[in-house]
Amino acid sequence: MKILHIGNEKNVENYTAKTPFTETAEVVNAPLGLTDDAYAQMAPDAEVIIVDAITEISEGLMEKLPALKMVHSEGVAFNKIDLAAAGRRGIYVCNCAGMNARAVAEQTLLLMLGVVKNVVFGDRAVRDGRQMEVKMGYMGAGSLKELADCKVGLIGFGAIGKATADMLHAFGVTVYYTKRHRLDAEEEARYQVQYLPMDELLKTCDMLSLHVPVTGETMGMCNREFFAKCRKGSYFINTSRGELVDDEALREALENGTIGMAGLDTLDHEPVQKDHLILSWPQEIKEKILFSPHIGGITGSSFRRGYAMIWEDIEKISGGETPGHIVNQKELNLG
């Protein structure tokens, strides 16, 4: 089995369990940023591509690899892979759904707690010798919150949303969710969540957290109309994808106080460089944002779970079976 891996070359080595099958597979490691021609020349007979989750796999590259049977995201995201082109060729596109659910849920909780307690402001105050000033200010105003003071609304309720709900219950939080298809009553009871349509959720909840993939429907969904429906002073958390958010709409919401603080693990136009648009915003706006460097889903445990899924699917392909984590069922007419 010939495999082209596009991404960090250490990933296959570090996260692949040694089995008779994995030991006999031939893996060609290729760095990010090469041309389709360069990738095709490195592994012209590749049957499988394993690719970094936010890296493009174009129709042009697939056409240059006549033996290609499967493209497998190294993570959960797959929106940069041309699903339609893969479907036309009968190529499976798979992802590692659920591999990072606990890890991203932990990152979500970190950002939720970080904005509620405004940890960056507090850290800076202590370093500046203003501990008592800040402490007395909070005590006098009664403005410091507990997470349970917030009604939390989860937008999307897949594996990560469910793991987040489970963790939130330990803090005594009332959790709402919205998704395209409502859960049945038994599942809602299992996760102790209450369903609300999107508009109701936005006006009801004090803390909003995104847990949806990037699709044509969700791209830029957090726009001016979205933020206009939010409760004044709401917290906004994004551990999903930056492309879900209209940056200028978020800026306006932070400026006018619709959003009190935002916790962002991911931004549009990554990798984030010093000239990123958001980093040029006025300081008083940036101080309302808690950033983390898109690390929610990249724990070692997440990658070990993911690579177990990847090799399971590769072994099935090798044996002429259908892989188990297909995301282009529609394009392949699989129902």
Rank of each mutant, 00 (worst) to 15 (best):
K179Q: 09
K179P: 04
R182N: 03
L183H: 12
L183D: 13
D184G: 11
A185I: 13
A185H: 12
A185G: 11
A185C: 09
E186M: 10
E187Y: 15
E187G: 06
E188N: 08
E188F: 07
R190Q: 14
Y191P: 05
V193L: 08
Q194W: 12
Y195R: 03
M198H: 04
M198G: 03
E200K: 15
E200D: 14
L201Q: 01
L201F: 01
L202W: 00
L202G: 00
T204W: 07
C205K: 02
D206E: 15
D206F: 00
D206M: 03
M207Y: 04
M207I: 01
M207R: 02
L208H: 01
S209L: 01
L210E: 05
V212N: 11
V214W: 06
G216I: 04
E217H: 12
T218M: 04
T218E: 05
T218H: 02
M219C: 06
M221W: 11
M221N: 07
C222Y: 06
N223R: 05
F226A: 06
A228R: 14
K229F: 00
K229R: 11
C230A: 11
R231C: 06
R231K: 15
K232M: 13
K232S: 13
G233Q: 07
S234F: 08
Y235Q: 13
I237G: 13
S240C: 10
S240Y: 02
R241Q: 03
R241C: 01
E243C: 05
L244E: 04
D246Y: 03
D246R: 03
D247Y: 09
E248D: 15
E248Q: 12
E248T: 10
L250C: 07
L250G: 01
R251A: 04
E252Q: 12
A253H: 02
L254F: 06
E255P: 10
E255C: 11
G257K: 08
T258C: 13
I259P: 08
G260N: 12
G263I: 03
G263Q: 04
G263Y: 02
G263A: 06
D265R: 10
D265L: 03
T266P: 08
L267P: 02
L267R: 10
P271G: 11
V272R: 08
K274G: 07
I278M: 14
L279A: 05
W281S: 00
P282I: 00
P282N: 02
E284T: 14
E284S: 14
I285M: 03
K286V: 00
I289W: 07
I289M: 03
I289A: 02
L290F: 06
F291C: 08
H294E: 13
I295E: 11
